[in-house]
Design a protein around this nucleic acid. Structure first.
Length: 540
RNA sequence: GGGCCUGUAGCUCAGUCAGGUAGAGCGUCGGACUUUUAAUCCGAUGGUCGCGGGUUCGAACCCCGUCGGGCCCGCCA
């Protein structure tokens, strides 16, 4: 059974109505790691709905969290804003300076700034969760009941956290972090409490009160989380392995939730996504691939497929190079198969059946639209990458596909893919292995593999090419002529050509590529190769 | 120190929860298409399931131990 269906089954045992929560702090650029959080939630919701449950996806925007530090993309002006809530400070402008005017005029906050593009990406990828901005929840008093409970009995909360996490809380710890005289959550000491006011003294020596029903502060994370499970009615939540560690925030959250008077959500811990060869992704180090960036390269269904087809506890290495090509081709191959048909074969072993079923589910989940299986384009990524490099005009690509793939009219998906493919090729992520490059100088290595008798072919080639117009047809004719005059087969000619022009044993059809190269340079290359091979038998 | 994940074919991984003859895809090799846009199609190859014990008629799967890899335990998905 697919992991999403396992979760749905677990939820069905729990009840009929479900709210699946995801939550992210908008402290910097979002990356595809965050996408796993949201997509995992989205896929659970789909599976639950498929199983006949009512399920909704919500996205808690943790914009009540404070700014932790001045990230590399921020100007020093942000030093003064450390500890301030992300939803109540201005967004950085193009130079990383706080954009106060936009903040004051439109209320455009730091959190909004980073959230907006992520939501755009989510829309493209077929996920439109209900947004639950946390800061606003505090300000409208949604946290008040849980907060009161915690502040009334801080000892009970302290006991849970210390026992479950094995961590000792400081003497002055209090289950509410008030905002100080400047609006920061840092360095404030609680000096007293009588509902609904928490008394405090800040780092500047100023004293004041904080109304817990008006969001004049926030709960510490380990309480914030279980509190919002309650008033939002969360029944299921996927979260990263950091929260899932023993004694981590889910463990303490479970008990605190019950203390608040509700059942914790059904959890699903998932592994992180790392960038191939570069370790875990992190907004603060800038070691990221944004969802937007990823979507410039690959269609949404491929990204969804990556998540759907990886079990949550499996770490994913995101590879924007060859890995992406293989992933996309893998997706393409599977989606062009008729799995229903294959599953009707009763001779399948249980193992084979499970494999097909899970893949079928993953493919369904890969579609940005529910119940709308992504139709196979039947054009592999490799092939499209090739065409996109050879043909500068889209029309040319379609013409070629019409001939080779019986393609009558390019579909919307194909247009889309070609557009993204061109972006990818233009980006630094495009793997060299896929890049078509014609040699400027002979490849000693490739030529060394040729037999002495091939020398003749090279000479014939030069002659033949010289006698033909420098066009696709002319060059093709020249290849044939070279085969005839050197009295060998076309296979040999191609082998020599790939060695000469690309330094490889095989490759894409050469004529159209050469036609786009400079004639003189190519003829010189042939001569240079000829010279190099000529010397070889003499010296050895 | 506490804990989680992980080890299965050359590679990426299913299969472990519900024990019943080792599964995919890629790669590799071969063939076909009277020669190819890294194509497509067909076929073949390939594994003492990390290691050692135990339970069982039967173990990749359950139990105990052990070794290796990754990671979490202020915040982070």
């Amino acid at each position: 059974m697919h992991w999403s269906d396992v979760m749905a089954q677990r939820l069905a045992e729990r009840g009929q109505n479900h709210i699946v929560a995801t939550g992210i702090t908008p402290s910097g650029e979002f990356h595809i790691g965050h996408l796993r959080e949201i997509l995992t939630g989205d896929m659970i919701v789909r599976a639950a709905q498929k199983a006949g449950l009512n399920a909704e996806l919500v996205f808690v925007v943790d914009n009540a969290d404070p700014l932790r530090k001045v990230y590399p993309f921020l100007s020093d002006d942000y030093h003064a804003l450390i500890g301030h809530q992300l939803g109540s400070i201005p967004a950085p402008d193009a130079n990383g300076h706080p954009d106060w005017s936009r903040f004051e005029n439109e209320g455009w906050s730091y959190g909004d700034h980073f959230l907006a593009p992520f939501l755009d990406a989510l829309a493209q990828i077929g996920v439109e969760p209900k947004l639950l901005p946390n800061l606003e929840a505090y300000q409208s008093g949604k946290f008040a009941a849980a907060t009161k409970r915690a502040c009334d009995e801080p000892g009970a909360i302290r006991e849970i956290i210390e026992r479950v996490s094995g961590r000792e809380l400081s003497e002055d710890w209090f289950p509410w972090q008030p905002l100080d005289s400047k609006g920061s959550l840092d360095g404030v000491v609680v000096t007293g409490y009588e509902y609904p006011m928490v008394h405090w003294r800040d780092a500047h020596g100023i004293e004041g009160v904080s109304d817990i029903t008006k969001g004049e502060g926030k709960l510490p994370w380990r309480l914030d989380w279980p509190a919002k499970w309650g008033f939002n009615g969360i029944t299921c939540e996927p979260f990263g392995k950091d929260h899932g560690a023993a004694g981590g925030s889910y463990d303490t959250g479970k008990e605190i939730a019950r203390f608040f008077g509700h059942e914790p959500p059904t959890p699903l811990t998932y592994e992180w996504i790392s960038l191939r060869g570069q370790g875990a992704m992190s907004s603060s180090t800038g070691n990221t691939v944004g969802p937007i960036e990823a979507l410039e390269l690959v269609p949404p269904e491929i990204l969804r497929y990556l998540i759907a087809n990886s079990k949550p506890n499996k770490a994913i290495e995101f590879d924007t190079g060859m890995g992406l090509v293989n992933l996309a081709d893998d997706f393409e191959r599977w989606s062009s198969r008729d799995l229903q048909e294959e599953l009707s074969d009763s001779s399948l072993s249980r193992r084979q059946r499970v494999q097909l079923e899970d893949t079928e589910t993953a493919l369904a989940l890969a579609s940005p639209k529910v119940g709308n299986a992504v139709s196979a384009t039947s054009v592999s990524f490799r092939h499209l990458a090739l065409l996109a490099q050879i043909k500068t005009e889209d029309v040319e690509v379609w013409r070629s596909l019409a001939a080779s793939h019986d393609l009558e009219e390019p579909t919307v998906e194909l247009h889309d893919r070609l557009r993204r493919m061109r972006n990818w090729i233009a980006s630094p992520h495009f793997p060299d292995e896929m890049r078509i490059s014609v040699r400027k100088t002979p490849s000693e290595e490739a030529l060394a593999d040729l037999e002495a008798e091939h020398l003749q072919v090279i000479n014939c080639l030069h002659k033949a090419l010289s006698n033909q117009p420098w066009t696709n047809e002319g060059i093709t004719a020249a290849f044939k002529a070279a085969a005839e005059s050197s009295s060998t087969g076309m296979r040999q000619v191609y082998r020599v050509c790939y060695a000469v022009f690309m330094g490889k044993e095989r490759g894409p059809r050469l004529a159209p590529i050469l036609a786009n190269c400079d004639r003189t340079e190519m003829l010189d290359l042939v001569v240079a190769c000829s010279n190099m091979v000529e010397r070889k038998p003499a010296s050895g």
